[in-house]
Computed example of a mutant assay.
Amino acid sequence: MAPLIKVCGMTEAENIRKVEQQGVDMIGFIFYPKSPRCLCEIPGYLPAYAKRVGVFVNESKESIFMYADRFGLDYIQLHGNESPEYCRSLHNAGLHLIKAFSVSLPKDLLAVPAYNGVCDYYLFDTKTPQYGGSGNQFDWSLLHHYNGPTPFLLSGGINPYSAKAIKEFRHPYFAGIDINSRFETAPGIKDVERISNFLEELNSK
């Protein structure tokens, strides 16, 4: 089965429309003020076919509900130090969650099981001083220490030359990939041709 494709950090209406036309599964909008890809206002076009994902870092629940309603979000991606209890309360309110974890050592996966049952997906990203967006890839072999049951997306430094490695990656809970900075012409603006060529290679036999 082809992996899910999530394109994160989009900001501009026509760019969103063109990326969606490539057949991606999810488009992510960052609502973290310190991000260079922060979405400050509703763009003139929001995805009609791809799922809409809102990315938050240590945000209040009230704020998340407001954004979820205003932008018609399908998923809430949590990229901060949100606790399992916090995630459970959002889950119980009917929101679909993606919880991000930064990985550089096997011990970084020890916190993950506490979130089982309240997240639709996990997202494993490269550990950085900031919250994601490093443009660097972590050692995917560390994920052999993860044994489920929640499916996950791979993130962190995936670039136009990563297709071969993704096709060779094997894990029973691997669901898809998250691409961002390595497919940009400027922060928040994606290179549609680069994405199109990458997806073509990823889907080739």
Results as ranks from 00 to 15, higher is better:
residue 4 L to F: 12
residue 5 I to W: 02
residue 5 I to F: 01
residue 6 K to I: 10
residue 8 C to H: 04
residue 12 E to F: 15
residue 15 N to Y: 06
residue 19 V to K: 10
residue 22 Q to N: 09
residue 25 D to Q: 08
residue 28 G to S: 11
residue 31 F to G: 01
residue 31 F to Q: 04
residue 42 I to G: 00
residue 42 I to D: 00
residue 52 R to L: 05
residue 58 N to H: 05
residue 61 K to Q: 15
residue 65 F to A: 09
residue 65 F to Q: 08
residue 72 G to I: 13
residue 77 Q to P: 11
residue 79 H to I: 07
residue 85 E to K: 03
residue 89 S to F: 03
residue 90 L to E: 07
residue 93 A to V: 01
residue 95 L to Y: 15
residue 98 I to Y: 06
residue 104 S to Y: 02
residue 105 L to D: 14
residue 106 P to W: 07
residue 107 K to G: 01
residue 110 L to T: 12
residue 117 G to R: 07
residue 126 T to V: 10
residue 126 T to R: 04
residue 128 T to V: 14
residue 133 G to L: 10
residue 138 F to L: 06
residue 139 D to K: 11
residue 140 W to C: 07
residue 141 S to W: 03
residue 141 S to A: 13
residue 146 Y to C: 09
residue 147 N to V: 03
residue 151 P to T: 05
residue 151 P to Q: 10
residue 159 N to F: 04
residue 161 Y to C: 03
residue 161 Y to F: 11
residue 161 Y to V: 00
residue 162 S to D: 08
residue 167 K to C: 09
residue 168 E to N: 13
residue 169 F to M: 01
residue 172 P to M: 05
residue 177 I to K: 04
residue 181 S to M: 11
residue 184 E to A: 12
residue 188 G to M: 07
residue 190 K to A: 06
residue 190 K to R: 07
residue 195 I to F: 04
residue 197 N to W: 05
residue 201 E to D: 15
residue 202 L to G: 08
residue 204 S to N: 12
